[in-house]
Design a protein around this nucleic acid. Sequence first.
DNA 1: GACTATACGGACCGCCGGTCCGTTTCGTAA
DNA 2: TTACGAAACGGACCGGCGGTCCGTATAGTC
Lengths: 235, 235
Amino acid sequence: MAERKARADALRNREAVLTAADELFARSASPRSVSMDDIAAAAGVGKGTLFRRFGDRTGLIREVFEARIEPLRHAVEEGPAPLGPSAAPRDRVPALLDALLRFKLDHRHLSLALEESGSGSPYEGASYAWWHNVLRETLQRLPHPPEAAGRAGAAEADEESGSVEKDADGCTTPDPRAGVLDRAADCDFTAHALLAATRADLVEYLVDQEGMTPHRIRAQLATYVSRVLSEDQAT
Amino acid sequence: MAERKARADALRNREAVLTAADELFARSASPRSVSMDDIAAAAGVGKGTLFRRFGDRTGLIREVFEARIEPLRHAVEEGPAPLGPSAAPRDRVPALLDALLRFKLDHRHLSLALEESGSGSPYEGASYAWWHNVLRETLQRLPHPPEAAGRAGAAEADEESGSVEKDADGCTTPDPRAGVLDRAADCDFTAHALLAATRADLVEYLVDQEGMTPHRIRAQLATYVSRVLSEDQAT
DNA sequence: GACTATACGGACCGCCGGTCCGTTTCGTAA
DNA sequence: TTACGAAACGGACCGGCGGTCCGTATAGTC
Protein backbone atom coordinates (compact mmCIF):
# COMPACT_ATOMS: atom_id res chain seq x y z
CA MET A 1 0.00 0.00 0.00
CA ALA A 2 2.83 2.29 0.86
CA GLU A 3 0.50 5.17 1.58
CA ARG A 4 1.51 5.25 5.22
CA LYS A 5 -0.02 3.58 8.22
CA ALA A 6 -3.41 4.96 9.22
CA ARG A 7 -2.86 4.15 12.84
CA ALA A 8 -5.63 2.07 14.32
CA ASP A 9 -5.99 4.19 17.43
CA ALA A 10 -6.57 7.31 15.36
CA LEU A 11 -9.52 5.65 13.69
CA ARG A 12 -10.82 4.31 16.96
CA ASN A 13 -10.60 7.72 18.58
CA ARG A 14 -12.24 9.41 15.68
CA GLU A 15 -15.18 7.07 16.00
CA ALA A 16 -15.32 7.53 19.76
CA VAL A 17 -15.43 11.29 19.39
CA LEU A 18 -18.16 11.16 16.76
CA THR A 19 -20.28 8.92 18.92
CA ALA A 20 -19.70 10.88 22.09
CA ALA A 21 -20.48 14.19 20.42
CA ASP A 22 -23.64 12.82 18.89
CA GLU A 23 -24.87 11.57 22.24
CA LEU A 24 -23.96 14.71 24.10
CA PHE A 25 -25.74 16.93 21.62
CA ALA A 26 -28.78 14.69 21.62
CA ARG A 27 -29.00 14.75 25.41
CA SER A 28 -28.31 18.40 26.04
CA ALA A 29 -30.96 21.07 25.92
CA SER A 30 -28.87 23.53 23.95
CA PRO A 31 -25.84 22.87 21.75
CA ARG A 32 -24.13 25.72 23.55
CA SER A 33 -24.10 23.77 26.76
CA VAL A 34 -21.89 21.11 25.20
CA SER A 35 -18.30 22.24 25.40
CA MET A 36 -15.37 20.77 23.54
CA ASP A 37 -13.96 19.66 26.88
CA ASP A 38 -17.17 17.78 27.55
CA ILE A 39 -16.89 15.96 24.26
CA ALA A 40 -13.22 15.18 24.76
CA ALA A 41 -13.92 13.85 28.24
CA ALA A 42 -16.91 11.79 27.13
CA ALA A 43 -14.87 10.29 24.32
CA GLY A 44 -12.01 9.52 26.68
CA VAL A 45 -9.68 11.60 24.57
CA GLY A 46 -7.47 14.61 25.02
CA LYS A 47 -8.59 17.97 23.82
CA GLY A 48 -5.62 18.33 21.51
CA THR A 49 -6.60 15.16 19.68
CA LEU A 50 -10.03 16.48 19.13
CA PHE A 51 -8.86 19.73 17.58
CA ARG A 52 -6.16 18.10 15.49
CA ARG A 53 -8.60 15.78 13.81
CA PHE A 54 -11.50 18.15 13.33
CA GLY A 55 -9.90 21.54 13.12
CA ASP A 56 -12.44 23.37 15.21
CA ARG A 57 -15.83 23.03 16.76
CA THR A 58 -17.65 23.66 13.52
CA GLY A 59 -15.60 21.02 11.75
CA LEU A 60 -16.46 18.46 14.39
CA ILE A 61 -20.15 19.21 14.26
CA ARG A 62 -20.13 19.04 10.49
CA GLU A 63 -18.52 15.63 10.51
CA VAL A 64 -20.97 14.27 13.03
CA PHE A 65 -23.81 15.63 10.96
CA GLU A 66 -22.44 14.22 7.75
CA ALA A 67 -22.02 10.81 9.33
CA ARG A 68 -25.62 10.77 10.50
CA ILE A 69 -27.23 12.08 7.35
CA GLU A 70 -25.19 9.93 5.00
CA PRO A 71 -27.84 7.19 4.59
CA LEU A 72 -30.42 9.77 3.59
CA ARG A 73 -28.04 11.37 1.16
CA HIS A 74 -27.37 7.96 -0.30
CA ALA A 75 -31.07 7.28 -0.66
CA VAL A 76 -31.47 10.54 -2.52
CA GLU A 77 -28.52 9.98 -4.79
CA GLU A 78 -29.16 6.41 -5.80
CA GLY A 79 -32.20 5.14 -3.98
CA PRO A 80 -35.59 4.05 -5.31
CA ALA A 81 -38.63 5.95 -6.48
CA PRO A 82 -39.85 8.79 -4.35
CA LEU A 83 -36.50 10.05 -3.08
CA GLY A 84 -34.13 8.78 -5.73
CA PRO A 85 -33.33 10.43 -9.05
CA SER A 86 -35.80 8.25 -10.91
CA ALA A 87 -38.80 9.82 -9.22
CA ALA A 88 -40.99 12.27 -11.02
CA PRO A 89 -40.05 15.80 -9.94
CA ARG A 90 -43.59 16.51 -8.88
CA ASP A 91 -43.32 13.66 -6.35
CA ARG A 92 -39.71 14.06 -5.52
CA VAL A 93 -39.78 17.61 -4.24
CA PRO A 94 -42.24 16.90 -1.42
CA ALA A 95 -40.42 13.65 -0.69
CA LEU A 96 -37.10 15.40 -0.36
CA LEU A 97 -38.42 18.05 1.96
CA ASP A 98 -40.34 15.60 4.08
CA ALA A 99 -37.31 13.38 4.41
CA LEU A 100 -35.15 16.31 5.40
CA LEU A 101 -37.74 17.48 7.88
CA ARG A 102 -37.96 14.01 9.39
CA PHE A 103 -34.23 13.97 9.78
CA LYS A 104 -34.27 17.32 11.52
CA LEU A 105 -37.04 16.13 13.79
CA ASP A 106 -35.12 13.00 14.66
CA HIS A 107 -31.84 14.82 15.12
CA ARG A 108 -33.09 18.13 16.30
CA HIS A 109 -30.24 19.06 18.57
CA LEU A 110 -27.54 17.98 16.18
CA SER A 111 -29.11 19.96 13.37
CA LEU A 112 -29.41 22.91 15.68
CA ALA A 113 -25.76 22.61 16.61
CA LEU A 114 -24.84 22.61 12.95
CA GLU A 115 -26.91 25.65 12.13
CA GLU A 116 -25.54 27.78 14.90
CA SER A 117 -22.01 26.48 14.66
CA GLY A 118 -20.47 29.87 15.07
CA SER A 119 -18.10 30.34 12.20
CA GLY A 120 -19.93 30.99 8.99
CA SER A 121 -23.64 30.65 8.40
CA PRO A 122 -25.13 27.21 7.81
CA TYR A 123 -25.39 28.23 4.18
CA GLU A 124 -21.67 27.95 3.72
CA GLY A 125 -21.58 24.32 4.75
CA ALA A 126 -21.27 21.58 2.14
CA SER A 127 -24.43 19.92 3.34
CA TYR A 128 -26.65 22.88 2.64
CA ALA A 129 -25.11 23.38 -0.78
CA TRP A 130 -25.82 19.77 -1.59
CA TRP A 131 -29.46 19.89 -0.55
CA HIS A 132 -30.00 23.15 -2.30
CA ASN A 133 -28.54 21.74 -5.45
CA VAL A 134 -30.65 18.61 -5.47
CA LEU A 135 -33.79 20.55 -4.75
CA ARG A 136 -32.99 23.22 -7.31
CA GLU A 137 -32.39 20.72 -10.08
CA THR A 138 -35.50 18.78 -9.24
CA LEU A 139 -37.57 21.93 -9.26
CA GLN A 140 -36.17 22.81 -12.63
CA ARG A 141 -37.33 19.52 -14.06
CA LEU A 142 -40.91 20.20 -13.06
CA PRO A 143 -43.39 19.91 -15.94
CA HIS A 144 -45.18 23.26 -15.79
CA PRO A 145 -42.76 26.10 -15.27
CA PRO A 146 -43.85 27.68 -12.02
CA GLU A 147 -42.96 31.19 -13.11
CA ALA A 148 -46.23 31.63 -14.92
CA ALA A 149 -48.08 31.43 -11.64
CA GLY A 150 -47.31 34.84 -10.33
CA ARG A 151 -47.12 37.38 -13.10
CA ALA A 152 -49.56 40.00 -12.04
CA GLY A 153 -49.13 39.14 -8.39
CA ALA A 154 -45.40 39.66 -8.47
CA ALA A 155 -45.56 42.94 -10.24
CA GLU A 156 -48.25 44.20 -7.94
CA ALA A 157 -46.53 43.08 -4.82
CA ASP A 158 -43.45 44.87 -5.83
CA GLU A 159 -45.01 48.10 -6.77
CA GLU A 160 -46.65 48.14 -3.41
CA SER A 161 -43.51 47.38 -1.53
CA GLY A 162 -41.82 50.15 -3.38
CA SER A 163 -44.35 52.56 -2.06
CA VAL A 164 -43.72 51.37 1.44
CA GLU A 165 -40.69 53.56 1.60
CA LYS A 166 -39.25 53.80 5.05
CA ASP A 167 -35.64 54.84 5.08
CA ALA A 168 -33.96 56.42 2.12
CA ASP A 169 -31.73 53.61 1.00
CA GLY A 170 -30.25 53.26 -2.42
CA CYS A 171 -33.19 51.22 -3.59
CA THR A 172 -35.55 53.84 -4.82
CA THR A 173 -36.78 52.50 -8.12
CA PRO A 174 -38.90 49.44 -7.48
CA ASP A 175 -38.80 47.56 -10.72
CA PRO A 176 -37.99 44.09 -9.52
CA ARG A 177 -39.53 42.48 -12.55
CA ALA A 178 -35.97 41.83 -13.55
CA GLY A 179 -35.33 38.16 -13.06
CA VAL A 180 -38.94 37.17 -12.74
CA LEU A 181 -38.78 35.48 -16.08
CA ASP A 182 -35.54 33.72 -15.30
CA ARG A 183 -36.57 30.16 -14.66
CA ALA A 184 -33.23 29.06 -13.24
CA ALA A 185 -33.00 31.92 -10.76
CA ASP A 186 -36.57 31.29 -9.79
CA CYS A 187 -35.91 27.65 -8.94
CA ASP A 188 -32.77 28.66 -7.12
CA PHE A 189 -34.62 31.01 -4.83
CA THR A 190 -37.56 28.68 -4.38
CA ALA A 191 -35.17 26.00 -3.24
CA HIS A 192 -33.73 28.35 -0.65
CA ALA A 193 -37.15 29.38 0.53
CA LEU A 194 -38.42 25.82 0.84
CA LEU A 195 -35.33 24.72 2.71
CA ALA A 196 -35.76 27.68 5.03
CA ALA A 197 -39.08 26.20 6.10
CA THR A 198 -37.21 23.24 7.55
CA ARG A 199 -34.69 25.24 9.57
CA ALA A 200 -33.70 23.44 12.71
CA ASP A 201 -34.46 26.29 15.08
CA LEU A 202 -37.93 26.65 13.63
CA VAL A 203 -38.55 22.95 14.03
CA GLU A 204 -37.21 23.11 17.56
CA TYR A 205 -39.48 26.03 18.34
CA LEU A 206 -42.56 24.39 16.91
CA VAL A 207 -41.97 21.22 18.88
CA ASP A 208 -40.79 22.64 22.19
CA GLN A 209 -42.60 25.96 22.45
CA GLU A 210 -45.71 25.44 20.37
CA GLY A 211 -46.07 21.83 21.34
CA MET A 212 -46.69 20.63 17.80
CA THR A 213 -46.24 16.94 17.14
CA PRO A 214 -43.80 15.80 14.47
CA HIS A 215 -46.72 14.40 12.57
CA ARG A 216 -48.47 17.70 12.47
CA ILE A 217 -45.43 19.60 11.39
CA ARG A 218 -44.84 17.18 8.55
CA ALA A 219 -48.46 17.50 7.48
CA GLN A 220 -48.24 21.27 7.51
CA LEU A 221 -45.04 21.28 5.53
CA ALA A 222 -46.51 18.87 3.01
CA THR A 223 -49.52 21.12 2.56
CA TYR A 224 -47.32 24.15 2.23
CA VAL A 225 -45.05 22.50 -0.32
CA SER A 226 -47.93 21.35 -2.42
CA ARG A 227 -49.25 24.88 -2.43
CA VAL A 228 -45.93 26.21 -3.63
CA LEU A 229 -45.91 23.66 -6.43
CA SER A 230 -49.56 24.39 -7.19
CA GLU A 231 -50.51 25.22 -10.79
CA ASP A 232 -51.87 21.77 -11.50
CA GLN A 233 -54.47 22.42 -8.84
CA ALA A 234 -56.79 23.67 -11.55
CA THR A 235 -56.41 20.39 -13.39
CA MET B 1 -44.12 63.38 38.59
CA ALA B 2 -43.16 61.86 41.89
CA GLU B 3 -42.34 58.56 40.33
CA ARG B 4 -38.68 59.02 41.15
CA LYS B 5 -36.04 60.92 39.26
CA ALA B 6 -35.11 59.29 35.96
CA ARG B 7 -31.62 60.71 36.06
CA ALA B 8 -30.74 62.50 32.86
CA ASP B 9 -27.37 60.82 32.50
CA ALA B 10 -28.97 57.39 32.50
CA LEU B 11 -31.09 58.36 29.53
CA ARG B 12 -28.15 59.91 27.77
CA ASN B 13 -26.02 56.84 28.27
CA ARG B 14 -28.76 54.57 27.11
CA GLU B 15 -28.99 56.48 23.90
CA ALA B 16 -25.23 56.52 23.47
CA VAL B 17 -25.06 52.76 23.89
CA LEU B 18 -27.87 52.14 21.42
CA THR B 19 -26.21 54.33 18.83
CA ALA B 20 -22.75 52.90 19.37
CA ALA B 21 -23.99 49.33 19.19
CA ASP B 22 -25.91 50.00 16.02
CA GLU B 23 -22.88 51.51 14.35
CA LEU B 24 -20.53 48.81 15.48
CA PHE B 25 -22.78 46.05 14.23
CA ALA B 26 -23.32 47.81 10.94
CA ARG B 27 -19.58 48.23 10.40
CA SER B 28 -18.39 44.81 11.50
CA ALA B 29 -18.32 41.81 9.23
CA SER B 30 -19.76 39.43 11.79
CA PRO B 31 -21.82 40.21 14.89
CA ARG B 32 -19.51 37.90 16.80
CA SER B 33 -16.63 40.24 16.28
CA VAL B 34 -18.39 42.95 18.26
CA SER B 35 -17.79 42.40 21.95
CA MET B 36 -19.61 43.99 24.82
CA ASP B 37 -16.39 45.72 25.77
CA ASP B 38 -16.21 47.20 22.28
CA ILE B 39 -19.70 48.60 22.61
CA ALA B 40 -19.05 49.96 26.07
CA ALA B 41 -15.86 51.62 24.91
CA ALA B 42 -17.45 53.06 21.79
CA ALA B 43 -20.30 54.46 23.85
CA GLY B 44 -17.87 55.92 26.37
CA VAL B 45 -19.51 53.95 29.12
CA GLY B 46 -18.50 51.38 31.68
CA LYS B 47 -19.27 47.75 31.10
CA GLY B 48 -21.30 47.52 34.28
CA THR B 49 -23.62 50.26 33.08
CA LEU B 50 -24.21 48.40 29.91
CA PHE B 51 -25.20 45.17 31.62
CA ARG B 52 -27.30 46.86 34.27
CA ARG B 53 -29.47 48.59 31.70
CA PHE B 54 -29.81 45.78 29.18
CA GLY B 55 -29.43 42.65 31.23
CA ASP B 56 -27.27 40.76 28.78
CA ARG B 57 -26.01 40.82 25.24
CA THR B 58 -29.25 39.51 23.82
CA GLY B 59 -31.22 42.16 25.65
CA LEU B 60 -29.06 44.89 24.24
CA ILE B 61 -29.33 43.62 20.69
CA ARG B 62 -33.07 43.29 21.03
CA GLU B 63 -33.43 46.88 22.17
CA VAL B 64 -31.29 48.19 19.35
CA PHE B 65 -33.34 46.18 16.90
CA GLU B 66 -36.63 47.35 18.34
CA ALA B 67 -35.51 50.95 18.16
CA ARG B 68 -34.62 50.62 14.51
CA ILE B 69 -37.65 48.69 13.38
CA GLU B 70 -40.13 50.79 15.31
CA PRO B 71 -41.11 53.02 12.37
CA LEU B 72 -41.91 49.98 10.27
CA ARG B 73 -43.92 48.45 13.05
CA HIS B 74 -45.80 51.70 13.37
CA ALA B 75 -46.50 51.77 9.65
CA VAL B 76 -47.90 48.27 9.88
CA GLU B 77 -50.02 48.96 12.90
CA GLU B 78 -51.59 52.22 11.88
CA GLY B 79 -50.18 53.28 8.55
CA PRO B 80 -51.86 53.66 5.18
CA ALA B 81 -52.94 51.22 2.51
CA PRO B 82 -50.53 48.51 1.51
CA LEU B 83 -48.89 47.94 4.89
CA GLY B 84 -51.52 49.19 7.28
CA PRO B 85 -54.50 47.25 8.62
CA SER B 86 -56.82 48.78 6.06
CA ALA B 87 -55.14 47.03 3.15
CA ALA B 88 -56.75 44.05 1.46
CA PRO B 89 -55.11 40.88 2.79
CA ARG B 90 -54.21 39.81 -0.73
CA ASP B 91 -52.12 42.97 -1.08
CA ARG B 92 -50.96 43.24 2.47
CA VAL B 93 -49.19 39.91 2.75
CA PRO B 94 -46.68 40.63 -0.03
CA ALA B 95 -46.30 44.17 1.26
CA LEU B 96 -45.48 42.98 4.75
CA LEU B 97 -42.91 40.50 3.58
CA ASP B 98 -41.30 42.91 1.17
CA ALA B 99 -41.09 45.58 3.84
CA LEU B 100 -39.52 43.14 6.26
CA LEU B 101 -37.10 41.96 3.63
CA ARG B 102 -36.14 45.53 2.83
CA PHE B 103 -35.49 46.16 6.47
CA LYS B 104 -33.29 43.11 6.71
CA LEU B 105 -31.42 44.17 3.61
CA ASP B 106 -30.87 47.64 5.02
CA HIS B 107 -29.93 46.38 8.47
CA ARG B 108 -28.36 43.11 7.57
CA HIS B 109 -25.81 42.90 10.31
CA LEU B 110 -28.12 44.03 13.05
CA SER B 111 -30.72 41.50 11.99
CA LEU B 112 -28.05 38.87 11.88
CA ALA B 113 -26.91 39.80 15.36
CA LEU B 114 -30.46 39.45 16.61
CA GLU B 115 -30.98 36.05 15.04
CA GLU B 116 -27.85 34.53 16.44
CA SER B 117 -28.02 36.30 19.76
CA GLY B 118 -27.02 33.22 21.68
CA SER B 119 -29.61 32.71 24.37
CA GLY B 120 -32.81 31.41 22.91
CA SER B 121 -33.69 31.14 19.26
CA PRO B 122 -34.89 34.21 17.39
CA TYR B 123 -38.33 32.71 17.60
CA GLU B 124 -38.56 33.46 21.28
CA GLY B 125 -38.07 37.18 20.81
CA ALA B 126 -41.01 39.56 20.97
CA SER B 127 -40.28 40.89 17.52
CA TYR B 128 -40.70 37.56 15.78
CA ALA B 129 -43.88 36.84 17.68
CA TRP B 130 -45.27 40.17 16.58
CA TRP B 131 -44.49 39.68 12.91
CA HIS B 132 -45.77 36.16 12.97
CA ASN B 133 -48.97 37.33 14.51
CA VAL B 134 -49.61 40.10 12.01
CA LEU B 135 -48.83 37.84 9.11
CA ARG B 136 -50.92 35.00 10.48
CA GLU B 137 -53.96 37.16 10.99
CA THR B 138 -53.64 38.73 7.58
CA LEU B 139 -53.37 35.32 5.97
CA GLN B 140 -56.46 34.21 7.78
CA ARG B 141 -58.43 37.07 6.32
CA LEU B 142 -57.62 35.98 2.80
CA PRO B 143 -60.67 35.45 0.61
CA HIS B 144 -60.15 31.92 -0.71
CA PRO B 145 -59.04 29.50 1.98
CA PRO B 146 -55.70 28.13 0.80
CA GLU B 147 -56.10 24.76 2.47
CA ALA B 148 -57.74 23.11 -0.50
CA ALA B 149 -54.53 23.18 -2.46
CA GLY B 150 -52.60 20.21 -1.21
CA ARG B 151 -54.50 16.99 -0.75
CA ALA B 152 -52.79 14.22 -2.64
CA GLY B 153 -49.34 15.73 -2.52
CA ALA B 154 -49.22 15.70 1.24
CA ALA B 155 -50.25 12.10 1.64
CA GLU B 156 -47.85 10.93 -0.97
CA ALA B 157 -44.92 12.79 0.45
CA ASP B 158 -45.46 11.10 3.73
CA GLU B 159 -45.68 7.60 2.52
CA GLU B 160 -42.48 8.10 0.69
CA SER B 161 -40.56 9.57 3.53
CA GLY B 162 -41.70 6.70 5.65
CA SER B 163 -39.86 4.35 3.36
CA VAL B 164 -36.66 6.28 3.80
CA GLU B 165 -36.42 4.89 7.27
CA LYS B 166 -33.19 5.71 9.01
CA ASP B 167 -33.56 5.31 12.73
CA ALA B 168 -36.53 3.75 14.39
CA ASP B 169 -38.21 6.77 15.86
CA GLY B 170 -41.71 6.83 17.22
CA CYS B 171 -43.11 8.13 13.97
CA THR B 172 -44.00 5.00 12.09
CA THR B 173 -47.51 5.69 10.87
CA PRO B 174 -47.42 8.45 8.32
CA ASP B 175 -50.90 9.86 8.25
CA PRO B 176 -50.23 13.57 8.21
CA ARG B 177 -53.62 14.44 6.87
CA ALA B 178 -54.45 15.36 10.44
CA GLY B 179 -54.55 19.11 10.67
CA VAL B 180 -54.66 19.70 6.96
CA LEU B 181 -58.20 20.91 7.21
CA ASP B 182 -57.46 23.22 10.11
CA ARG B 183 -57.43 26.66 8.56
CA ALA B 184 -55.94 28.42 11.57
CA ALA B 185 -53.06 25.99 11.95
CA ASP B 186 -52.45 26.22 8.26
CA CYS B 187 -52.11 29.99 8.34
CA ASP B 188 -49.94 29.70 11.40
CA PHE B 189 -47.46 27.45 9.68
CA THR B 190 -47.58 29.36 6.42
CA ALA B 191 -46.66 32.50 8.32
CA HIS B 192 -43.66 30.74 9.81
CA ALA B 193 -42.60 29.40 6.44
CA LEU B 194 -42.89 32.74 4.70
CA LEU B 195 -40.99 34.53 7.44
CA ALA B 196 -38.29 31.87 7.18
CA ALA B 197 -37.70 32.97 3.62
CA THR B 198 -36.58 36.35 4.94
CA ARG B 199 -34.11 35.01 7.50
CA ALA B 200 -31.18 37.36 7.96
CA ASP B 201 -28.50 34.76 7.38
CA LEU B 202 -30.13 33.70 4.13
CA VAL B 203 -30.31 37.30 2.99
CA GLU B 204 -26.71 37.80 4.02
CA TYR B 205 -25.68 34.72 2.09
CA LEU B 206 -27.56 35.70 -1.05
CA VAL B 207 -26.02 39.15 -1.06
CA ASP B 208 -22.47 38.37 0.01
CA GLN B 209 -21.86 34.89 -1.37
CA GLU B 210 -24.21 34.67 -4.31
CA GLY B 211 -23.81 38.29 -5.23
CA MET B 212 -27.52 38.90 -5.70
CA THR B 213 -28.67 42.48 -5.70
CA PRO B 214 -31.30 43.59 -3.19
CA HIS B 215 -33.59 44.29 -6.10
CA ARG B 216 -33.33 40.79 -7.38
CA ILE B 217 -33.91 39.23 -4.01
CA ARG B 218 -37.02 41.31 -3.51
CA ALA B 219 -38.29 40.33 -6.93
CA GLN B 220 -37.69 36.66 -6.21
CA LEU B 221 -39.42 36.85 -2.88
CA ALA B 222 -42.38 38.65 -4.44
CA THR B 223 -42.69 35.93 -7.05
CA TYR B 224 -42.41 33.26 -4.43
CA VAL B 225 -45.01 34.86 -2.19
CA SER B 226 -47.46 35.28 -4.99
CA ARG B 227 -47.07 31.61 -5.80
CA VAL B 228 -47.81 30.64 -2.23
CA LEU B 229 -50.92 32.77 -2.28
CA SER B 230 -51.88 31.39 -5.71
CA GLU B 231 -55.37 29.85 -5.99
CA ASP B 232 -56.85 32.92 -7.65
CA GLN B 233 -54.51 32.26 -10.52
CA ALA B 234 -57.22 30.20 -12.18
CA THR B 235 -59.62 33.10 -11.94
C1' DG C 1 -24.99 72.73 51.33
C1' DA C 2 -26.05 68.30 52.97
C1' DC C 3 -28.16 63.88 52.10
C1' DT C 4 -29.73 59.81 49.67
C1' DA C 5 -31.06 57.09 46.01
C1' DT C 6 -29.30 55.92 41.85
C1' DA C 7 -26.05 55.23 38.35
C1' DC C 8 -21.31 54.58 37.19
C1' DG C 9 -17.04 51.99 35.83
C1' DG C 10 -13.54 48.90 35.66
C1' DA C 11 -11.25 45.23 38.27
C1' DC C 12 -12.46 40.71 38.62
C1' DC C 13 -14.30 35.84 37.73
C1' DG C 14 -15.26 31.47 35.45
C1' DC C 15 -15.58 29.39 31.17
C1' DC C 16 -14.57 28.22 26.65
C1' DG C 17 -12.42 27.61 22.12
C1' DG C 18 -8.07 26.89 20.50
C1' DT C 19 -2.76 26.13 20.82
C1' DC C 20 1.66 24.03 22.14
C1' DC C 21 4.85 20.82 23.11
C1' DG C 22 6.80 17.11 25.81
C1' DT C 23 5.38 12.23 25.93
C1' DT C 24 3.50 7.92 24.20
C1' DT C 25 2.29 4.63 20.87
C1' DC C 26 1.82 2.51 16.46
C1' DG C 27 3.75 0.47 12.45
C1' DT C 28 7.79 -0.90 10.10
C1' DA C 29 11.97 -2.81 8.86
C1' DA C 30 16.33 -4.51 10.23
C1' DT D 1 12.69 -8.97 18.76
C1' DT D 2 14.27 -4.85 18.88
C1' DA D 3 15.12 -0.34 17.46
C1' DC D 4 13.50 3.70 15.38
C1' DG D 5 10.91 7.55 13.39
C1' DA D 6 6.60 9.25 12.24
C1' DA D 7 2.34 10.09 13.83
C1' DA D 8 -0.94 10.69 17.48
C1' DC D 9 -1.76 11.84 22.14
C1' DG D 10 -3.25 14.78 26.14
C1' DG D 11 -3.57 18.26 29.24
C1' DA D 12 -1.36 22.52 30.83
C1' DC D 13 -1.79 26.79 29.03
C1' DC D 14 -3.50 31.17 26.73
C1' DG D 15 -6.32 35.15 25.25
C1' DG D 16 -10.74 36.81 25.18
C1' DC D 17 -15.46 37.05 26.26
C1' DG D 18 -19.88 37.44 28.78
C1' DG D 19 -21.27 38.62 33.09
C1' DT D 20 -20.72 40.21 38.23
C1' DC D 21 -19.49 43.13 42.19
C1' DC D 22 -18.68 46.85 44.90
C1' DG D 23 -16.42 51.10 46.05
C1' DT D 24 -17.07 55.69 44.02
C1' DA D 25 -19.29 59.63 41.87
C1' DT D 26 -23.27 62.25 40.91
C1' DA D 27 -28.06 63.88 39.90
C1' DG D 28 -31.90 65.33 42.23
C1' DT D 29 -34.15 66.88 46.59
C1' DC D 30 -35.04 69.62 50.78
